[in-house]
Write a protein that binds this DNA or RNA. Structure first.
Lengths: 167, 167
DNA sequence: GGAGAAAAAGACTTTAAAATCTTTTATTAT
DNA sequence: ATAATAAAAGATTTTAAAGTCTTTTTCTCC
């Protein structure tokens, strides 16, 4: 038997992962984009425009950071926007039909789909890392859901009180 | 119809996620820890010691960064180590029986288990974000696998050529 | 057409993970 | 004892995401 003492807490010495969120399958940017786009879809149903101010306050997202994300969504045609007084963001014909996976591609890139949980190069079904199969099914289920669900689906859920965008 | 052009590529302007890996459910640190611990379990079966040099070269992990991670594992009793010439890391009675989830707790903390995919505060089954249920089942499946599998299980897989720690 | 409002854009700062470099400590062998 | 070796420890740097601040552009309304 080893007589070495093994403290279970070593936070005084070394700390990995000091952030307030973990297990971040997706970037914060993605979460912000998804929530904001859905918010616009819900609250801008009849062409009303939603301003950044309202968006960032309602969803508790940093104003200017959200601004950049919204620009990106507009650039990709997910939403439209108008400048000036009474300007803002509003849904277009594409908004509701956008699958979540599309947003993910915009914010996090398309490499999301075939990444190794252990960051091993060329990990694949024939040459798997020890977590490959577990992670593949986990991730694929997630991606499947995100391919099936559109912003319209989320908006409907929100309106029915089945899920929530904030708090 | 909108007559605004919507370029699909805006990498010249804004880029989120510039890293070479995505969808990082776990930290790199965790991957390094898991691979290194398993390597020791495989190649140090009969008490042979494995040096950092050999570990970092064999697994293509930065030497000193791996050093810190190994220290942390030793501190937590997952492995033992000896300094000096012919020193190195070696398996102890706990090594083989360590479930992967234990390593994850050490490297990434215990908050991994109940995080919201969209970073919404107090997201839970009763007050879910739009991705809560999808993500919960995805993550729980992963955690279940990692609770069931021990380093010994991985080591056996490696030895049978069923999975790989490198490349 | 000038003032105000709001998105767009750009530059900069902060934070934490990841990585690197240097020094110290413990062990072995001569 | 001393030199060599390897882990342990500490300090520092790098990278990218996240966040902030400032300026510019576009639009509306008076």
């Amino acid at each position: 038997m080893s007589n070495i003492s093994h403290p279970t807490d070593c936070s005084h010495r070394l700390r990995f992962r000091q952030v307030d969120y973990f297990c971040a399958m997706f970037s914060k940017t993605f979460g912000y984009a998804l929530r904001a786009a859905t918010f616009v879809a819900v609250h801008g149903k009849n062409g009303e425009k939603i301003g950044l101010q309202e968006l960032s306050q309602s969803l508790d997202i940093p104003h200017h950071f959200l601004g950049k994300i919204m620009q990106d969504l507009v650039r990709h045609g997910i939403l439209d926007s108008i400048k000036g007084p009474s300007g803002g963001f509003y849904a277009n014909e594409q908004t509701a039909e956008t699958p979540l996976i599309e947003l993910l591609k915009i914010t996090d890139g398309s490499l999301v789909f075939n990444q190794c949980a252990l960051n091993i190069k060329r990990c694949n079904a024939e040459h798997p890392c020890p977590l490959h199969h577990d992670f593949a099914s986990c991730r694929d289920g997630m991606l499947k859901a995100m391919s099936a669900k559109t912003i319209a689906v989320l908006a409907a859920e929100i309106e029915e009180g089945k899920s929530f965008l904030v708090r």
